[in-house]
């Protein structure tokens, strides 16, 4: 599993790292207990400042996706079992974020709905 940082992407590098790691955890490709690379290793490999990776890890920690212990380093956190209402709230948030992003791209509602249906159809 790899993460990348694109210098031409307007998204800040820490957010690029955070987003990719968060998606890997949420998709289950990074399991609870899996160790992430040290801040220094990832920063060196991605050619970014250690503070950039540290900030990404901090945000992941605040979101409850990873936990950092002094000796064990940063590991993927145990994920709590969501109740149905929590799951509904998370789903609503993901949907509204997607719609907001699509609107910011200048997409009309029909376009968004069509893209939505296509995405669902692929599954």
């Amino acid at each position: 599993m790899r993460v990348s940082v694109d210098a031409d992407d307007p998204t800040p590098p820490y957010e690029q790292i955070r987003g990719q790691v968060a998606r890997l955890i949420e998709a289950g490709r990074l399991a609870p207990g899996d160790r992430l690379p040290t801040v220094r290793q990832l920063a060196g490999d991605l050619r970014v400042a250690p503070g950039t990776v540290a900030r990404a890890y901090k945000e992941l920690e605040m979101a409850g996706l990873v936990e950092t212990r002094r000796a064990a380093g940063t590991r993927v956190a145990q994920r709590p079992v969501l109740t149905s209402s929590q799951r509904a709230r998370r789903l609503a948030k993901v949907m509204s974020d997607a719609v907001e992003t699509a609107r910011s791209l200048g997409c009309a509602e029909e376009e968004i709905a069509k893209a939505w249906a296509t995405a669902l159809g692929r599954r």
Binding site: M1, R2, S4, D6, D8, P37, L42, L46, R47, G73
Partner: peptide, 8 residues
């Protein structure tokens, strides 16, 4: 564009 392994 740089990419890196997430394995420690």
């Amino acid at each position: 564009r740089s990419d890196a392994d997430l394995r420690r």
